[in-house]
Design a binder for these strands. Sequence first.
DNA 1: GTCTATACTACGATAGAC
DNA 2: GTCTATCGTAGTATAGAC
Lengths: 206, 206
Amino acid sequence: MAHARLLDIAIREFGSKGLDGASTRSIAAAARTAMSSITYHYGGKEGLYLAAADRIAELMATTMTESLPFDEALTDDPAAARARIHRILGQLTDKMASDASGEWTLFVMREQMRPSAAFDRIYGGVMGRMVRMLADLVRVATGQDMRAAQVATITLMGQVLALRASRATCLRLLERDALDADDIAEIKARIDANIDAILDSMRGPA
Amino acid sequence: MAHARLLDIAIREFGSKGLDGASTRSIAAAARTAMSSITYHYGGKEGLYLAAADRIAELMATTMTESLPFDEALTDDPAAARARIHRILGQLTDKMASDASGEWTLFVMREQMRPSAAFDRIYGGVMGRMVRMLADLVRVATGQDMRAAQVATITLMGQVLALRASRATCLRLLERDALDADDIAEIKARIDANIDAILDSMRGPA
DNA sequence: GTCTATACTACGATAGAC
DNA sequence: GTCTATCGTAGTATAGAC
């Protein structure tokens, strides 16, 4: 299917150059199709951009659903909530540490920095549900109010995000060319320990 | 001075569109100068790109030097090391939370994801020194080996980084249009508490 | 649905006036 | 040092063949 290839390349091109900077010509050429097929299928450059955002939301969904039990009932057991936090952030760490998600990372980062209509499509999908679920789980796990839980959620996610958002810095600090399985395991162990330390510190002086 | 204006605009344009995507024409026009002045002063598009990277390294240096005591002797007192970690990450949080640094964030992010020669210029400056100093301070503060300290440093920085790298998500989760002083104070308090919780958890079972 | 052909605008580099 | 003029290339959009 030419559509899938076109969207994959569009995500990479728009990610690295933005809506204005990317060129439909080179996207079409890389997808081995005529440029006018973009007009035909997506109505033009902007349509392709939004379709790329939808595709990212879709990829995020298939990537994260295993650890995101949207259908499970909300728990009010602190220990169960904490276990779910570990599971979600653990899987997120795997994805951030792998090279596979690198293609759409820049696309999302740009939208994080200067949100457009495309951000609504991404955040409106699994991403928004995930962060809200995380915040709620932190609330249950700590007994704090929602506001404190939201702030803590941001710091918890940040630890995972660092692997992508400051990838080159991480590699230089660790003196690595790429993260191998041992590196990732060590980082995950550190993050798991940090999660417990942070949640404990919030539960103590409630 | 036209050079400063040219570099400021170059940072924003290259940041949002990348080396290929950005256009010297629009950069020159926004700086109210002729496009050929870029060739004259920087030798061309790539020269301007590298000069923009140097300018970012310079901005980072002036931004962070107050909390980065490069001239102070390295301490071996865990409490003093911890205090320095708080000071560095506290100032970094202020910068990440403010809107001012938003201009060059995308430039650096892109280089983090796909490093070019420009990343060496940025990391080779204050940035590299800062992360190495942080790792060393974590080592002293916890008594762990350097490797464990490096991994922990990544997670510590990540908490701060989240404010920029996932800015729009943070704002949506907190239901804010922008972070006000109270928000920032609350986030800083959370990060300070997290730093202590994480360092304590590392010092305990050495 | 996918392609070629085309119209028009914008790109980076460079030469040369001043 | 800063400008305009120009060259060859590449950009989006659109019309129309098949």
